[in-house]
Structure formats: structure tokens, C-alpha cells
């Protein structure tokens, strides 16, 4: 399931062995989990995992605020493309 994969990826790649689990509504930006490098890795993971290319204009703080927001963004892109 995408949500679990996203959470697992973020937990393992973007958190520096921080044991705190991230919930679907936790802000990834205010906590500094998503920085420039983290965002590049995350977008690359999403594109590889889902085959969906996220348009640059949709890579915004609001769309990447939480795991739920990221899921919604991917759905939106899929929907726009009729995938």
C-alpha cells in the first residue's frame, strides 16, 4: 500500500534514525524532515514507485506537508492523467 511505503521510505531515508514514528498528519516540513535533499529523494522515490511524474508546479509545501497530502497529490496527478 502506497501510504505504508511512503511512511517507510520517509522513516528510513529522511529521518536520521529518529525513533519517533511519523503519523499520516504530522508535518514533514516544519519538523525539517523535508529539506532540499530530502525532497529530491522523496520525489524520485514516488516517481519510481508509482510511475507517476509529479509536475513541478505541484511540488509545493502544501502538497508535501504530510503523508496524507502527498498521497492526495499523487491521486490528483493520476486523476488528471486518467490513469
Amino acid at each position: 500500500m502506497l501510504r505504508n511505503d511512503l511512511t517507510k521510505f520517509i522513516q528510513e531515508n529522511l529521518l536520521q534514525k529518529d525513533p519517533t514514528p511519523i503519523g499520516p498528519e504530522d508535518s514533514l516540513i516544519d519538523s525539517g524532515i523535508i529539506n532540499s535533499m530530502g525532497l529530491i529523494r522523496l520525489v524520485s522515490f514516488i516517481e519510481t514507485r508509482t510511475g507517476v511524474r509529479i509536475p513541478d508546479a505541484m511540488i509545493t509545501p502544501d502538497n508535501f506537508e504530510t503523508v496524507t497530502a502527498i498521497e492526495r497529490t499523487i491521486d490528483e496527478v493520476r486523476h488528471q492523467r486518467g490513469v
Binding site: 516544519d30 529539506n35 509545493t60
Partner: peptide, 10 residues
């Protein structure tokens, strides 16, 4: 702002 820096379009 840290909230904007990672996002090129922003």
C-alpha cells in the same frame, strides 16, 4: 524560509 527553500517553484 525553510518552508520555501526546498521547493523550486515556490
Amino acid at each position: 524560509p525553510d518552508r520555501i527553500a526546498p521547493f523550486p517553484a515556490e
